[in-house]
Simulated scan of single mutants.
Amino acid sequence: MSLLSVQNLGVTLRQRPVFRDVSFDLHAGEFVGLIGPNGAGKTTLMRACLGLLPHAGQSSLSALSLAERARTVAWMPQAREIAWPVSVERIVALGRLPHLPAGQALPPADKVLVDAVISRLGLDAFRDRAASRLSGGEQARALIARALAQDTPLLMADEPIAGLDPAHQISTMQVFRQIADDGRAVMMSIHDLGLAARHCTRLILLAEGGILADGAPQDVLTAALVARAFGITAWHGDTPDGPVFQPLEVV
């Protein structure tokens, strides 16, 4: 089932084309890593898909009403400093707002979901702590939990693992992969090509003003495409512990 359909999408900012003629479909069960060099337009592409930026072409999400969009896709932007002195539990519970009538208290079933997400992200010890007093990595995990609590068919996140330590980067990627395996879909921008190769089911390589490659990680992270898009050499192979991708040198 298609959860996002994009046709001939293009964005121009400050009279400069960022990308054009971008088309793809995102289906249930996919964990898509959006990769590309700095400035390729990864954030811009996701924001345009969500209808947050003026764009040419069509996006099925931007055609939805705001209420329908909030029940269809959870969005985690790159900026994630929490300034509000409210508890982590309250931050996570905010993810349930699109599903509740205005002014309604959190029902018991929603409370169970919030508790489960807090545990899944390893935040039980921080439940009652003011989110504004957490470290940057802990705040990132709280906001990931809020997005998960929204419980939408599609989750879109802009560099959600940036700033996390290696253990939490891996565990977050595992959570996102499990979401996809459970029949929903995840699209995230990511710079760590090793984690993308290991956990994503599909990669979209944005470069040179459009989609340079789209497919399984082993078909996108080829020596030729990696050199062309990123200007590097890399080692990519299958091991008994799974696929490994290691950047080596600048070419």
Rank of each mutant, 00 (worst) to 15 (best):
Q174H: 09
I179A: 01
T12N: 11
L148P: 09
G237L: 14
T43S: 14
L148Q: 03
N38G: 04
V175N: 01
T152M: 02
A131E: 02
I179S: 07
T43K: 04
V32Y: 07
P107H: 06
L134W: 06
L221A: 05
V11D: 00
G95V: 10
A180N: 05
V86K: 03
Q150F: 03
V92Y: 01
R96S: 02
G36A: 02
S5W: 12
A234N: 08
A105H: 13
A142K: 07
V175C: 09
G194N: 03
V114S: 10
R141N: 01
N38T: 10
M46R: 08
I179C: 08
F176R: 04
Q58C: 14
A125L: 13
V6Y: 00
S23D: 10
V73M: 01
A147I: 00
D115M: 10
L52Q: 07
V73R: 05
V32D: 01
P217G: 09
S87R: 11
L9G: 07
D238S: 14
V117F: 09
L113P: 02
N8L: 11
Q58R: 15
D21G: 14
A167H: 14
L53V: 06
L113G: 04
V226A: 00
S65W: 00
R127D: 11
L61A: 11
Q15M: 14
R47F: 08
F126P: 03
L64T: 04
V73G: 00
L134Y: 05
D182V: 12
L248Y: 07
C49Y: 06
G209F: 10
T222S: 11
I144N: 04
A48Q: 06
R71Y: 04
